[in-house]
Design a protein around this nucleic acid. Structure first.
Lengths: 340, 340
DNA sequence: CTGAAAGCGCTTACAG
DNA sequence: CTGAAAGCGCTTACAG
């Protein structure tokens, strides 16, 4: 394969030094003045040779290469939760394109390798100007290392680890969840149940926090509200709750959506028709069920904002401070909530 | 934070040269022998300093960077045809991860910029070791330029441009489509219609070719079989075909899936229930309609094979030849085809 | 067995 | 106005 042309090749072709080529191509006209004729000659030679700067060399020598990393702790294109992550990726791509940034997907550990390899894979993200991270857990050591080195990074989703030093763009699940319960209370519901998964992701505890805050405000018996369950237990719960006089059920929407799907199935199987027999709300947007009341997570915007925050960090001149952004959810009125 | 430690720091600490450190840390024991004591001293110093190799420098110094480009001519994450491309991306990511390659998504022109910019964006793909291309059209000039420079690239989808010099992994739509018509003929159907889009993508003409080949073999009147139509015209066609005694309809599945969706809707609206009132087949897999007869496009495998072909090209020692791979589709029996 | 040196392709002071 | 030189942190011949 013919070598890719370098600045030195352009320099030879244009009869100038490699330094001059670098100056002209990088548009680094800071305190420098170059004759227009030289400039044109260089530009023409570069065009003719089809010059493309080597991003790796650029990054070694300077600091930017206009590549943003995207690191997911599982798969960037998960098959079981595609409906969840896809809009975020769409947002990331949109904003990156708008800002002239390419994306580097680090495929590091597809879950196949030992978690020990995570460390190296995460450190490799340094080849980009900065990196977006997705995922429930935070591998503290490598992230701390990146942060300590001043490497720009942004998590997608709220992260409190490492003393709050991790910049993130998250979703205000607390407020959105509280609003859903508020609405039920306003409609006269007193016997409410909140069904959540066993998993302890921040997005789960945030939702619970919002639910409990609203319950407390309404002076409901908070101890009875929260119920942790597996998908398989849902049908039995529905039965029990009917006996307890429950009039409204709220369920967490997780990335797989399996818990809310299980609930919707169980409700239908029990012959209950919301909102008449039971009010139903999902803390999120269940797939293929736009009629269900709840809220919409601004996933696309999440991706866009994360990219913007990252680029801000990269271009920031002063010392960076950890930035934390929480986006509001969009309330979904739906048709599954009614008077108690 | 103090500077990240470099090999030179370790060298100083261990009292050896930086070269020796590099040799020991990279495990590059090829023709070299190092005393175990030196080795231990260096390893210990590296550990103590918390050394992590700089991936950027590593990649500059070695020739490959283990990054594969992914270039899409529109958006890598299209919102209207997500169901179509997503599995391909999944396959690409899987195989890339398995082969230890990172992915660079070129966001070049999201359709916003003039096609002239395509040229530069496409050339930028050279920062990777090789690149995968998606898309209906081939911008000949930049692709030719890449090919001429010996840059490894693979198209996803059959491409005949540039004198067949473009390596690709495609799908054997001809054979799969013919097989569907064969099946209908075996079941006694003689009045068959093939509904296709106006668009002239290779995947469309391949399907038509397969349909016509099967029709010819069965000595059907080929002139009446193929019908090009827009989504909006489908309902009227159904009506007409009933008058013509049509017993089976085959429809093309495009990336948006809108034509097959229009047909399924029109058939249902006309009160026709396949396979009793009409046999129905889709040349592909319509979204959310697993019961429809036809075939499944091996999209995930398409992504995987494309990655493998690309990596083969990259690692090939001798002169590369354009490789063309066609994958078989998986027949879907379905329940919408019956006897005439 | 180990080191001095060149080089990967750029940027960035520093000289003219 | 432009060039020679050093340097980013590593790898890889090439000498001892």
């Amino acid at each position: 394969m013919a070598r890719a042309p370098r600045q030195a090749d352009i320099a030879a072709a244009a009869g100038v030094s490699q330094t001059t080529v670098s100056l002209i191509l990088s548009g680094n006209t800071d305190g420098v003045r170059l004759s227009e004729s030289t400039r044109q000659r260089v530009l023409k030679a570069a065009e003719k040779l089809g010059y493309v700067p080597d991003p790796v060399a650029t990054r070694l020598a300077s600091s930017r290469n206009h590549m943003l990393g995207v690191y997911t702790f599982a798969s960037a294109f998960p098959t079981d939760v595609d409906g969840f992550y896809y809009p975020i990726l769409v947002g990331i791509e949109e904003e990156a394109a708008a800002l002239g940034q390419d994306l580097v997907l680090f495929t590091g550990t597809g879950g196949l390798e030992a978690p020990a390899d995570d460390k190296l894979a995460i450190r490799r993200t340094r080849i980009a100007d900065g990196c977006l991270f997705f995922g429930r857990q935070v591998p503290e050591e490598p992230i701390d290392w990146l942060l300590g080195g001043g490497f720009p990074l942004v998590y997608i989703g709220r992260r409190d680890e490492l003393g709050g030093r991790i910049p993130f763009v998250g979703v205000d699940y607390v407020a959105a969840s509280a609003a859903v319960v508020d609405r039920l209370v306003e409609l006269g519901h007193r016997e409410i149940r909140y069904l959540r998964s066993e998993d302890d992701a921040p997005s789960s505890s945030d939702r619970e926090e919002g639910v409990l805050a609203a319950a407390e405000k309404a002076e409901l018996d908070a101890r009875r509200i929260v119920v942790r369950a597996e998908d398989a237990e849902v049908a039995a719960l529905i039965e029990r709750w009917r006996g307890e006089g429950v009039t409204a059920v709220v369920v967490e929407e997780t990335d797989t959506g399996s818990l809310s799907a299980a609930l919707l199935d169980a409700v239908a199987a029990a012959g209950l028709r919301p909102p008449d027999d039971l009010s139903l709300a999902v803390l999120g947007q269940p797939k293929d069920h736009p009629e269900v009341s709840g809220f919409e997570v601004p996933r696309r915007e999440l991706g866009r904002r994360a990219v913007r925050l990252l680029v801000d960090q990269i271009t920031a001149s002063g010392p960076r401070i950890a930035e934390h952004v929480l986006l509001d959810c969009i309330p979904v009125a739906g048709s599954t909530i009614g008077p108690a």
